[in-house]
Amino acid sequence: MSQLRFTKDHEWIRVDGVTATVGITTYAQGQLGDIVFVEVPAKGKALKAGGEAAVVESVKAASEVYAPASGEVTEGNAALPNAPETVNKDPQGAGWFFKMALSNPAELNGLMDQAAYDSYVASLGA
């Protein structure tokens, strides 16, 4: 069973056992607008929960993508740097940023599930 969790910074993390896939949410890409540049982390990069993991830039501004949990990058999405618009088209599918091996799966307990995230987004009033 995979498990989908969300951060307040609008990253999503889909967990299958001890490996996880990370991206930004549909809401986040909508707020950013047209995405024109993505930088994904290299395999082997150590990530700390809440630390900078990737970069996404829209026509408007540059934003950091933070690691929802601690661990090590197992793969960056090599398709994104040459097709950053994929993040707008399919943010929670083909527009994933990186996969990681979790070092402390218990950290996920501090994240929101879909229902909690939906009401969080609703509370932002946009």
Partner: peptide
């Protein structure tokens, strides 16, 4: 207005 529903890229 910073952008309309078309979005900055397509507006440009």
């Amino acid at each position: 207005p910073v952008q309309y529903p078309l979005g900055v890229l397509k507006e440009h």
